Simulated scan of single mutants.
Amino acid sequence: MPVRHDPPPTHMLQAFSSVAKLKSFSRAAAEIGVSQSAISQRIAALEARLDTRLLHRENGQFELTAEGAAYLETVDAVLDALRRAASRVADRRAIVRISVLPSFARCWLAPRFVMFASLFPDVDVALHVSDDKVSLEDGDYDLAIRLRPSADRSGESMTKDDDVMIAVAAPGRSTSTSTASDPFADLPLLADDCGRLGLPAWGAWRSWYRLNRCDRSPTRGFAFSDAGLMVDAALSGAGAALVRRSLVADSIKTGKLVSVGSSLPSPGRTVLLERPNGRSSKAVQRVARWFLDASHST
């Protein structure tokens, strides 16, 4: 059969390179994510296309032929050049896929959209707003921002120090605190149900009242599964919220909310999770660094 002079498909070249590197058809199949028979078929098709034996097989073992060893050098160089070219193209107009907690998206990220757009004009963002568990290994997302128990040290913290819980209300909606008083006597209490952290919804409010020596032992009010919606309710004057300071720092700074009393340690910490093993693009790395720098300066 005459030798074809057009380049072989990259899936054939990748199969040959992986088998040569791993010295195993089964491991090459696992690395690429296809069946072992598919690997064998691709290499057989490559040898037929070149009309050259690349691998010498005998008793379940194989080694590169002289032609195969020489060809491998070129194949690896070509594949590496293609990967670099693809990376350059991707970084020119990158898509960064981020899965973000609803509360973080609403309270922290949304007010910074304009800033983000001005800093990253070459980056498109696909934003997934959810608190569902996601895997960064499967490639669906590049970054994830999640709430973890304070004792869980996974991910990189999105706050300067350990976050704290503070009681906030709209200006004029609370009274000054003193022993045996209730600063929120005329307000409904708003609570995060803390279901993701396995804690009772009203436990934090009871702890806050004990710490601040106030006469109230709250057991009811409005419990929210979305802390961002709870903050919106507090901003509208609907009640007093006990919330992580990182979610309301901007609103306190602008005077839209006021903090009352002493703070509690937070049972959770907001963290940034990245794809492991250094497999993130330059664009993803830039965005991740911005998230950390911006959150630490809040």
Rank of each mutant, 00 (worst) to 15 (best):
P8R: 00
P8S: 10
Q14K: 14
F16K: 02
S18D: 03
L22H: 04
S24Q: 10
E31L: 15
Q41A: 13
R42Q: 04
I43G: 00
A45D: 04
A45N: 05
A48G: 13
D51L: 08
L55D: 01
E58R: 11
N59E: 10
N59Q: 15
F62L: 05
A66C: 04
Y71C: 09
T74Q: 11
V75H: 01
V78G: 06
R83K: 11
A86R: 11
R88L: 14
D91A: 12
R92Y: 15
A94C: 11
A94E: 07
I95W: 09
I98C: 00
V100M: 05
L101M: 09
R106I: 13
L109R: 02
A110D: 08
A110F: 11
P111L: 05
P111T: 06
F113S: 07
P121N: 10
D122E: 12
V125W: 03
A126T: 09
A126W: 06
H128I: 02
V129I: 11
S130R: 06
E137H: 15
A144H: 05
S154E: 10
G155S: 00
G155R: 00
D162G: 10
R173V: 02
R173Y: 11
S174V: 03
S174G: 05
S176M: 07
S176K: 13
T177E: 12
T179R: 15
S181E: 05
P183G: 02
F184C: 04
A185K: 14
D186I: 09
L189M: 01
L190M: 05
A191Q: 03
G195H: 09
W205V: 04
R206G: 06
S207Q: 11
G221V: 15
A223R: 00
L229E: 13
D232M: 09
A238H: 12
L242N: 02
R244F: 04
S246N: 07
K253S: 08
T254A: 08
P265C: 12
G268F: 02
T270F: 14
V271H: 03
L273P: 03
E274N: 04
P276T: 06
K282L: 08
A283G: 10
R286Y: 09
V287S: 03
A288E: 01
L292T: 07
S295A: 14
H296A: 10
